[in-house]
């Protein structure tokens, strides 16, 4: 089997498209590269969605944390403490075990034009359950970073906005939020990298893999088991992660430039 054929058959194997049976004997380097790469789809999916949702949720949690209202502040504080204070590994485990205990119900969700049946059972599947855990995790970490940045927004900026007669919402949207992001961006970049790497834990010992569809580490593990040689698949997955981490840093760097575009260069 040539390498192009392998790409066609296994390129999307991780999401259930292509050849059903994984290679079992005479495993080639190409098959390892393709399947592990196919698994990266899951890692990217988890990272992108968790980061995207988490980013906005974190803004809310950070505001609640900074609020003088105890009803808002205390839950936010507790949430951040519990999530930041416990290993993600254990969060995955506890979440999975509790999701399994939830009675299997179906909710009908009407979106006007289509009816979707939302099943609580989906929570036990990685695509939703693990995403929820990762989302909560990044929300807490990001909220803590944003909260620190929020306190560091220069007082003068806020007073200037008041003097201009901005509404509270406008003031937040135009003055506080951009400053907060600018101050938080370096730490946020680190958090994004950590979260991306954390996606490798999803199938590792909590959420089961269905139909042999798993993330990059799942396939790397599969090959390490089949070839009994860890020195090929693990460096391959390492290489993939390095490449995507560099891309992630570059993308966040572009955003950083934009956030700082009004700041005169030193």
């Amino acid at each position: 089997m040539s390498c192009t054929e392998t790409i066609v058959e296994y390129g999307l194997r991780a999401i259930g498209i292509g050849e059903r049976l994984l290679p079992k004997a005479d495993i080639t380097l190409c098959e390892q590269f393709v399947l592990i790469g196919s698994g990266m789809i899951w890692n990217l999916y988890f990272a992108l969605f968790a980061l995207a949702f988490g980013f906005f949720a974190a803004t809310g949690v950070a505001l609640a944390r900074a609020s003088s209202q105890p009803l808002l502040q205390l839950p936010a504080k507790a949430f951040i403490f519990v999530i930041r204070g416990s290993p993600l590994f254990i969060q995955f485990f506890i979440a999975y075990e509790s999701f399994v205990l939830i009675p299997k119900l179906g909710f009908d969700l009407s979106l006007g034009f289509v009816d979707i049946t939302v099943e609580t059972r989906w929570l036990t599947k990685a695509w939703l359950g693990a995403l929820v855990v990762l989302f909560l995790n990044t929300t807490a970490y990001t909220a803590q970073i944003f909260h620190g940045a929020l306190l560091a927004v220069p007082k003068g900026d806020i007073e200037a906005a008041d003097a201009l007669g901005m509404t509270p919402f406008r003031k937040f949207r135009r003055v506080v939020w951009p400053s907060m992001l600018r101050l938080a961006w370096a730490s946020y970049t680190n958090e994004a990298i950590f979260l991306f790497h954390a996606t490798a834990l999803v199938f590792f010992s909590s959420f089961p893999a269905w139909r042999q569809e798993g993330d990059a580490l799942y396939y790397a593990n599969y090959f390490a088991d089949k070839t009994f040689n860890p020195f090929v698949p693990y460096p391959i997955i390492g290489l993939y992660f390095v490449i995507f981490t560099i891309v992630l840093i570059a993308v966040l760097g572009v955003v950083n430039k934009r956030l700082n575009r009004h700041v005169p260069p030193e």
Partner: peptide, 24 residues
Amino acid sequence: AGTGYTLVEFATPDETVAAVTSGE
């Protein structure tokens, strides 16, 4: 993996049994 059943894989034997009792 080669049969008509849907395979779901767990890391330890314990978890495979737990999956049956929980209905997973």
